[in-house]
Simulated assay, not measured.
Amino acid sequence: MGTYKKAKKTSRGQGNYQGMNWIRQEKRLTIYLRDGLACAYCGVSVEEGAQLTLDHIKPHSLGGTNKETNLVTCCLKCNSSRGNRTMEEFSAAAAAYLDHGLQASAVVAHVTACAKRKLDK
């Protein structure tokens, strides 16, 4: 992999938050693997064509951190749809659009369980 350049600090002290440079690529991949290479919200996997991203359980804009316990694998569709909604609000919307009889509480439980798993170092 290429060399990692440290992100410039912003006034919030969180670093450059655009693109993929806010987290080391190795850590991003480790989180994807922890979560089974599938979206924690809708379950679509890379084998099914998902473009994976990372989602902050507590949104960065609301003070969420970049720690792995606040990050889960998320497909681009879900991540783009979530916006600044809370995990509970978005989980209800995801359960409704999935229309598999899944309850929002089950989505929340799955997302929370993913974030609590230990990363393989």
Rank of each mutant, 00 (worst) to 15 (best):
D35T: 01
V44H: 10
S11T: 10
A40S: 15
R28F: 10
K58W: 14
A106T: 02
A109R: 03
K77E: 11
G36N: 14
K8I: 08
D55Y: 09
V111I: 05
D120V: 08
K116A: 03
S11A: 11
R117V: 04
S45Q: 09
C75V: 02
S91C: 09
N84K: 10
W22N: 11
G43E: 09
K6P: 03
C75D: 07
L76W: 07
M20D: 06
A109P: 00
G64D: 07
A95K: 00
D120A: 07
H60Q: 15
Y4Q: 11
Q18E: 06
V111E: 12
D120P: 04
S61H: 05
T73N: 01
T73H: 03
L76A: 09
Q18G: 07
L33N: 12
E26S: 15
Y17A: 05
A7M: 01
K77R: 14
L119E: 13
A50E: 04
I31Y: 02
G36F: 13
I23L: 07
R28E: 02
D120C: 05
Y17D: 03
A40L: 15
C75A: 08
C74A: 12
I23W: 05
T30K: 12
C74W: 01
T65H: 02
L52H: 00
S105K: 05
K9R: 10
A109F: 00
S81G: 13
V72A: 01
R34C: 11
V72S: 00
K67G: 04
T30L: 08
E26V: 13
Q14S: 06
N21G: 12
Y97C: 02
L54G: 00
A92S: 08
K118G: 06
I57D: 04
A93V: 09
I31T: 06
A50D: 03
G36S: 15
K67F: 06
K116S: 02
G13I: 02
K8H: 08
Q103L: 12
K8P: 04
